[in-house]
Each structure stands twice: as C-alpha cells, then as structure tokens.
C-alpha cells in the first residue's frame, strides 16, 4: 500500500458517496447512466468473487464489500424510488434495440460486455473460471464509464455533483497509474501488464472530460461540451 493507491481508493470511495448524496439530496437520478452503474455492479461482483476464497487484508475486504453494496444500492434506487427521473432516452447506446435488426440485446451487451468477455478468454492470468471473470472485470471496468460519458455528450452539460462523480472516478484511475509506476520501482516482482494496459485505456477515456471540466473550473463557467 502506498499513498497513491490509498488516495485513489479514497477518491473511489468518495465517488460513490457523492453520487448517493446527490441522488438523495435531489431525489433524482437525472443525468446518471443506469447502464454504467449496472456495468460497475457486474465488474465488482465478478472481481470480488474472491471474497469467498482469498483474503488479502481487512482493508481490501471492507472496501470490496462497500463497493458492491454501494453500487447495488445506486442501481436499486435508480430502478425503484428514483426511476421516474431516469433519463432513459439519453442513456441509449448506438445500436440499442436494433442488434442485428431484431434481437433484443442492447448495445451495451453487443458492444461492451461480449467483447470484454471474449478478450478475457484470450488474455487472462490463468485459464480458470475465476481468473477469466477477473480479467473480464478488469476489461469491463475500463469501458464501463462509456455510457455515462455518452450520456454527458448527448446532454452537453452535467449537473455539478454528476461531474464531481465522474471527476472522482477518473482521478482514482489516474492515481492508480502513479501507484503502478511507484510499485514497479519499489517492488521486486511487481508485474501486471494486463492491468496496466486496461488501466491506461480506462484513464485515457477520461482525458476529454478532464479537459473540459478543468476549463469550466478555471473560468468559473458552466461545464459545456463542444459540438
């Protein structure tokens, strides 16, 4: 554990709190992508299956349980008490409802989940059920924010807490990269290319958002995507 990873984890933890605080405070989930939240729930459920058979630290265990339960709560709220404020029209991916012309699966399954799973079958750290699901969760996490970013792109502007949420998740990823660099130079056998590549891809997806978020903060102006 180093300060970069700890800060990253704390930002990740804060991101859930920001989102939940915002949804409760405004009694609304407008601007939040249910697709991204469901993808994150799948990510955590697949990756933290090891809660049942391997123990790293009390810290890891508690964070894992928190990540799963917080995301499950957010998804549950979006499907129940805040359902009426869910902006389904802006949470549609290209190809939604028209996969192969008629099949029911949506863009998120065809373009995100299936490719990630296929990649996990090819590139993993061991060809066994848990390792494949673990690799799948790493790839899926890398792209899980896409529906949320697409939603932001459609609406062009976001509500302050939603932006803060995206910022926290993006910053957490950025700090993880610094953590890997630190670990690479301080730990003898530290080597995890699968995680590094996915993590860098994941962080790059936030680059555009970071740029416009920074411009908005700097100018004290409203966050506005171009185009």
């Amino acid at each position: 554990m180093n300060i970069f990873r700890l800060s990253g984890d704390m930002l990740h933890l804060i991101s859930f709190l920001v989102l939940m605080y915002r949804m409760r405070g405004q009694r609304s989930c407008r601007g939040v992508s249910l697709k991204s939240q469901i993808l994150f729930l799948i990510v955590f459920c697949c990756r933290y299956l090891d809660l049942f058979f391997s123990f790293v630290s009390l810290y890891n265990t508690m964070m894992k349980i928190f990540f799963i339960s917080a995301t499950a709560t957010i998804v549950y709220w979006m499907l129940t008490k805040y359902r009426s404020s869910y902006d389904m029209d802006n949470d549609k991916l290209h190809g939604d409802g028209s996969f192969m012309g008629h099949l029911p699966p949506h863009g998120v399954l065809g373009y995100i989940i299936v490719p990630c799973f296929l990649l996990a079958l090819i590139w993993n750290e061991g060809f066994e059920a848990f390792e494949i699901l673990w690799a799948f969760s790493i790839y899926l996490e890398a792209v899980a924010i896409l529906p949320q970013l697409f939603m932001l792109q459609k609406t062009k502007e976001g509500e302050a807490f939603t932006l803060l949420y995206i910022f926290c998740v993006g910053a957490y990823r950025g700090l993880y990269i610094i953590n890997w660099i630190y670990r690479y130079f301080t730990e003898k056998h530290y080597w995890q290319p699968l995680v590094w590549v996915s993590g860098v891809v994941q962080t790059l997806l936030y680059a555009d958002f970071f740029y416009y978020y920074w411009i908005a903060l700097r100018d004290g102006a409203k966050f506005q995507l171009p185009g």
């Binding site: 984890d9 990740h12 990756r47 056998h189 080597w191």
Partner: peptide, 10 residues
C-alpha cells in the same frame, strides 16, 4: 505467468 503479485488491488 508470474503470479507473485496476485490480485492485491481493488
């Protein structure tokens, strides 16, 4: 595969 690191991150 070198699994010395394991899945120790979140």
């Amino acid at each position: 595969t070198d699994k010395l690191t394991g899945h120790d991150e979140l």
